[in-house]
Computed example of a mutant assay.
Amino acid sequence: MVKIGNVSLGEFPLLLAPMEDVSDPPFRRLCKMHGADMLYSEFISSEGLIRDAIKSKQKLDIFDYERPVGIQIFGGDEEAMAMSAKIVETVQPDVLDINFGCPVKKVVCKGAGAGVLKDIDLMVRLTKAVIDSTHLPVTVKTRLGWDENSINIDEVAERLQDIGVQALSIHGRTRAQLYKGEADWSHIARVKNNPRIHIPIFGNGDVDTPEKALEYRNKYGVDGIMIGRAAIGYPWIFNEIKHFFKTGEKLATPTINDRVEAARNHLTWAIEWKGEKLGVFETRRHYTNYFKGIPNFKEYRQKMVTFDASTDVFQTFDEVLDQFSNHHVM
């Protein structure tokens, strides 16, 4: 049984990675419905939280049906991180996660996210500031190092565990790689097999099929897998992996009905959460992903991403069902 603090995650949990502009409540709810064991918020700027930035505050919205759920923060200033940890505690997530992995330039330039990979002492100080100011279990998501020549994940893992971090998610790339090249899980396996390490180690990077999930589980011995990009437009991946683990067989790919239902749920929940206007607008970017690979779909996609009224978008979903329900999706 894998546990973070007192939070039980089952035998081999599948975690939804925190993704900027993706991992909001409607998307998390879909992933939960399709088998994700643990969800994370989008990452939240500690400075933004303290300044009471509305966008940062809204990212603190979590709901009971999501549990266990973690809220992820990032920043490069100890005091700001400690204060934002106290703010996060007020909404009572199950876990508080720190992002030391985001490779995005605007985050790295502020000495946050993967920027901290260049300075392990700072990483330790920032993490300790958070741990000392909250009762929540604190976890960290990070990368292998800044670049090929500075892979320092072994030292990072030991030092973070020593100050009280309760689990570590490791993305198998360096900051320099961004999302290019292949994730190298051999470094993650080395951390997992280090006799000094006793906290759960979750692997992240490139797992996009049930076969790969099984291969990586067996080959690298991690405690669970965190899935990011492969879940965008395809929340079914969690249950597909679980089914494959159990039976060695693949579930049938989602039908048009399944895809329309996912898009419909996503839009419905987005409107419940943010209101009609924002709900419609913010769900648009997901439609292309839900209906990927369907031939002659352009006209419907065009409608979905241009209509401003939800009734028109829902009407388009009905048209798609009428038009494509006999199609087999690859």
Rank of each mutant, 00 (worst) to 15 (best):
D258W: 06
Y287L: 06
T255H: 07
V280L: 05
R285W: 05
T283M: 15
D258H: 14
L267R: 06
E276D: 07
H266I: 09
N265P: 00
Y290I: 08
A252Q: 14
L267T: 04
H286Q: 05
A262Y: 08
T268S: 11
Y290N: 07
W269T: 07
E261H: 12
W273I: 01
R259H: 06
W269G: 00
Y290F: 15
L278H: 08
T288L: 15
W273R: 05
D258S: 10
T288A: 15
K277N: 04
E272V: 11
A263M: 08
R259V: 11
F281S: 13
N289T: 06
H266K: 08
A270G: 12
T288D: 09
I256V: 15
D258Y: 08
W269Q: 08
H286S: 05
L278I: 12
V260P: 00
K292L: 10
D258R: 11
K277A: 08
H266S: 07
E261T: 04
A262L: 12
K274P: 00
R285L: 08
T283L: 01
K277T: 12
R285P: 02
A252K: 15
F281C: 04
T268M: 06
G279E: 00
F281Q: 13
G293W: 04
H266C: 10
A252F: 12
W269P: 00
R285Y: 06
V260H: 00
E276A: 09
R259Q: 09
A263Q: 06
D258P: 02
I256S: 03
G275F: 05
Y287K: 04
A263H: 11
I256N: 03
W269E: 13
I256A: 03
E282P: 01
A262S: 14
Y287M: 09
K274S: 12
H266P: 02
F281D: 14
H266A: 05
W273E: 09
E272R: 15
H266N: 14
A252V: 10
A262E: 02
K292I: 03
F281M: 11
N257S: 12
N257E: 12
F291W: 05
H266D: 04
E272F: 12
Y287H: 06
K277L: 06
V260I: 13
K292A: 09
I271D: 04
G293R: 01
E282D: 14
P254V: 13
W273H: 03
G279R: 00
K292N: 07
I271Y: 13
E282R: 13
T288F: 10
W273G: 01
R284V: 06
G279F: 00
R264T: 11
F281G: 03
W273M: 03
E261R: 14
L267H: 12
F291E: 01
W273A: 05
H266E: 06
H286R: 04
N257L: 10
A252Y: 08
P254G: 13
